[in-house]
């Protein structure tokens, strides 16, 4: 199983690597959305600083939404998803390889870009660190819930708008926890409890969502 996971992961990354700049699009999109806000709000330092964390989180959500509909779609179309579902033992390696490759390709580049974007919003170093910490804990949850949404809307028509409707309500707790963390840190208040909640949520999501994914994908291939 581990061997299969390795092969699948390697191949997944290779496919995307060969497709060239595919992984770049959500990243540029993320950057663009973030840089729209100063025009919409104001370029005043205090306003930007206050809303920086929220803007960055929302932009990340949107860029994730851009790439999520493709998560299982191509495998459904070329029939390989059906083959994984027939070999039940290969479904778990497939799901984990898929999610991991997705994180490597789409999420980690965004996270790496975030400190630079935060600087554009005059965020102090301490806040940037906390923001990154919440992003690291929160983005796995976003990805897992998003993959759940992608699996649920696999058979649906017009799946991308539908996907937003399915997953955004579920993202609200993550948003609240993460953004309040940053706000509290800005006021020099303790944030340990909040980070612990976020981490616990992340662990529960990692433990349970792949199991649900397994059943939902099986429904999706019929």
């Amino acid at each position: 199983m581990l061997k299969q996971f390795k092969i699948l992961l390697e191949h997944e990354l290779k496919i995307h690597y060969r497709h060239g700049a595919e992984w770049l699009t959500p990243l540029v999109f993320y950057w663009l959305v973030v840089s729209l806000f100063p025009f919409a709000l104001s370029s005043t330092q205090s306003i930007l600083r206050q809303s920086a964390a929220g803007i960055i989180w929302i932009a990340l959500l949107l860029s994730l939404l851009m790439s999520l509909p493709r998560l299982f779609q191509s495998d459904l179309k070329d029939g390989s998803l059906a083959q994984y579902c027939l070999r039940t033992s290969s479904l778990m390696p497939y799901i984990s390889a898929k999610l991991l490759s997705y994180a490597v390709l789409y999420i980690i580049p965004c996270l790496l870009l975030t400190p630079l974007l935060a600087l554009l919003f005059y965020l102090p170093a301490h806040s940037i660190f906390i923001l990154l910490l919440t992003l690291c804990l929160g983005s796995p949850i976003l990805l897992l819930i998003g993959s759940l949404g992608a699996a649920l809307t696999l058979k649906a028509r017009e799946s991308s708008a539908l996907l937003a409707l399915v997953i955004f309500p579920l993202y609200i707790p993550v948003l609240i926890l993460a953004l309040n963390c940053v706000n509290l840190a800005e006021q020099n208040l303790p944030i340990g409890a909040l980070l612990a909640y976020l981490a616990a949520y992340c662990c529960v999501a990692i433990a349970l969502i792949p199991l649900a994914l397994k059943s939902i994908l099986k429904i999706g291939v019929t």
Binding site: L8, H11, K14, I15, R18, D78, G79, A82, Y84, S90
Partner: peptide, 22 residues
């Protein structure tokens, strides 16, 4: 079936490795 389940972005050799693991 006519949905061949081969990966178009992979080489022949890699596809065979993929099929073998599956």
């Amino acid at each position: 079936s006519h949905q061949l389940a081969i990966k178009l972005g992979l080489t022949v050799q890699e596809n065979i490795r993929h099929l073998q693991s599956l």
